[in-house]
């Protein structure tokens, strides 16, 4: 009885949560449970789980060079793309935050990559990277540098794909950071100016601290998105050469929809989920300390 009374808040709360609980169960928990279930099976040519394989799918992927290589490529890819794209977007946003005539034009241009789909931009970059008629190699040729096999050389391919991804991510990052900048109270800058603060002092003491919640948000989202990059890989390299761009999500796709091995694909998906979860928790544990909430 006591418990019934005490839990009234919880019960009311649950009632409010009910719609989302139902939706989450349908579209999140059920697929999640199904993925875990499938990860213990081998599937036949029609994708039905027919052979119980225990934890062998997991032991297989952990012992396979291919998956370890995918993990490594994914981590490198995240390291190459996230910091650079956030930094470039930050610099562009600070520049575009100045109140100048015609700044709206630049804001539109800078955020325009957000409006281009992954597939379309990847195709454009595919032409830029083209080994024989691509723009990049023509430029290198014009200044007498040797041509680079952008997407065919395993040393270069991941960098090339990262370059594309940075370019694609800048638009969204720019827009969010610019939004954050516009939210900073003008009066703070005015007082600082009266106190005699210079441009960079204001940037360091006012802009960055007040922007930190936005930066934290954008870094978290970028990390998660980058871990799940797929479209540009599919179009630019198909995971090659020598698996050097075979990011985990692409590897999952190949395993599931080319090889029709839903079991091992599910096991990889679960591992990816765990990794993203750990990275995000770590980020909250260590990254959020530096965030200044108003």
């Amino acid at each position: 009885m006591k418990l019934w009374k005490r839990s009234v808040n919880v019960r009311v709360g649950l009632l409010y949560l009910l719609p989302s609980i139902i939706l989450f169960s349908m579209f999140v928990f059920y697929p999640m449970a199904k993925t875990i279930y499938l990860s213990f099976f081998l599937t036949n040519q029609n994708g039905l789980p027919v052979y119980f394989n225990g934890i062998e799918n997991y032991t297989y992927i952990f012992s396979s060079d291919e998956f370890r290589n995918s993990m490594k490529a994914t981590l490198l890819f995240v390291i190459y793309t996230v910091p650079v794209s956030v930094l470039i977007a930050l610099i562009m946003a600070i520049l575009a935050n100045e109140k100048l005539k015609g700044i709206g034009f630049y804001r539109t241009i800078f955020s325009s990559t957000m409006g281009i789909s992954v597939a379309a931009s990847a195709v454009v970059w595919l032409f830029l990277f083209h080994p024989s008629v691509g723009a990049f190699n023509n430029i290198l040729k014009a200044i007498n540098l040797p041509a680079v096999q952008w997407l065919l050389d395993p040393e270069w391919a991941l960098l090339s794909v990262s370059l594309t991804t940075i370019w694609m991510n800048i638009g969204f990052n720019f827009l969010v950071i610019l939004g954050g900048l516009q939210n900073i109270d003008e009066s703070l800058y005015e007082s600082a100016t009266i106190d005699g603060a210079g441009y960079f002092t204001k940037l360091r003491r006012i802009t960055i601290p007040l922007l930190s919640p936005t930066l934290f948000f954008i870094i978290t989202i970028s990390l998660i998105n980058t871990f799940q990059s797929f479209g540009q890989i599919d179009i630019l390299t198909k995971g090659g050469p020598i698996q050097s761009t075979n990011l985990v999500v692409y590897s999952i796709y190949k395993e599931a929809f080319v090889n029709y091995q839903f079991g091992t694909a599910s096991a990889q998906a679960i591992v990816l989920f765990a990794v993203v979860l750990i990275v995000t928790i770590l980020q909250f544990k260590f990254g959020e300390r530096k965030v200044h909430y108003q």
Binding site: F24, F27, V28, P31, M32, T35, T220, I224, Q228, F230, V249, Y253, A269, L272, F273, V276, L277, T280, I281, F284, E288
Partner: peptide, 25 residues
């Protein structure tokens, strides 16, 4: 509050992951 936020984020995360798989199908 932080914990709650972290949990919320976990949900969003799961949503994104499963949405990615789901979307394709």
């Amino acid at each position: 509050l932080k914990k709650l936020f972290a949990f919320g984020l976990m949900f969003v995360l799961m949503l994104i992951i499963s949405a990615c798989n789901g979307e394709e199908a």
